[in-house]
Nucleic acid binder design. Structure first.
Lengths: 182, 182
DNA sequence: TCCTAGAGTGAACTTTGTTCACGTGAACTA
DNA sequence: TAGTTCACGTGAACAAAGTTCACTCTAGGA
């Protein structure tokens, strides 16, 4: 196991997030849950902000790596979109947390580039591929934010269907700008 | 003019937002700018949250009412999208403010419905019209949020062009599901 | 045995939102 | 004219938040 104390603090913070939500995620509450004085946490993270960043890092890293169907650009787009949404929905206030504290690292840039590559392989021009990728990601973030903030009442299957339907709209738009398959 | 004190406080808060950003928009700073003790503000707004809500209300109300080209559903969509984005970009941290504190009122629902109506008039089924509207709004929010958070360096014309290009993608997707014009 | 390093204590400080009993001056009313 | 009302503001306090700091404790290796 060999979990460093730093890791334990992070895990406790993620658990606490699930219990009380981000607005009540306080240094003191976290310290209490660890059976420790508030100041002790600053041995492991230099600030609360740094801790939140680490939580965000854990969330984006934990998103399920999609099984890539080679050559199927629409499938790739759908998988990436679903994975991004899933990562946020998996944690209470996940979307808000990402929106507020996410600073894209090299791995995020890498997966962005991978999508662009897939679209380029399907025949899209460089700029068109970037625009399409940007658009899908903006949609995923916008939809999920709104979903988590204001649609907790709507049953999950319905939300899934709505998300899918909007994504299909965008994919149709992208498909129209692509050269026809040979 | 006859501006009520309440109005003056709101105006001062909006000015202060522009100067210091939402993270440093504090009750004390606002009081100081009004030449008043912090507690005095609670005569006019029951809580800081209520004041932020009022600011959001002012921002969404202040978005330019688009000139509606009758019968042109794509034009209507573009106008609404541009108006929403413009409203957020017009204020520092506008997108974050909206995303965190916006609780859609009757007028927001009304303008949502108006878009749905326009699409229905163009031949879309009810559900398709709702999905299309939702998708455009999610895109606008997602794009603007990211834009204001991380693309301050990119020059405005370029950002406008990117926004337009993504929107065109979605509009193309919507157009593909509509019956051909007679 | 000494000593270093990681972990935690306990108490403080600053800043934040918020409350509350009380003053004050202008406008209305009898 | 005298009294009442009312909107507005004062001044001081409160609790909770993030953060800092000097000190202690406890292992484990030289």
């Amino acid at each position: 196991m060999m979990a460093s104390r730093r890791q334990e603090v992070l895990t406790a913070a993620l658990d606490l997030l699930e219990e009380v939500g981000i607005d009540d995620l306080t240094v003191r509450r976290l310290a209490q849950r660890l059976g420790v004085q508030p100041g002790a946490l600053y041995r492991h993270y230099p600030s609360k902000r740094a801790l939140l960043d680490a939580m965000v890092g854990h969330i984006v890293a934990g998103a399920p790596a999609p099984a890539v169907p080679a050559g199927d650009w629409a499938g790739h787009l759908r998988a990436m979109a679903a994975s991004g949404r899933e990562g946020m929905l998996a944690h209470r206030d996940g979307a808000r947390l990402l929106a507020t504290f996410y600073d894209p690292g090299p791995d995020a840039v890498a997966s962005f580039m991978r999508i662009v590559e897939v679209l380029r392989a399907a025949g899209a021009a460089e700029r068109a591929a970037v625009v399409a990728t940007d658009t899908v990601l903006a949609y995923v973030n916008g939809f999920t934010m709104e979903e988590q903030a204001r649609r907790a009442a709507t049953p999950r299957p319905e939300r899934d269907r709505d998300f899918q339907a909007g994504l299909d709209l965008i994919i149709a738009g992208i498909g129209a700008t692509l050269p026809p398959a040979p």
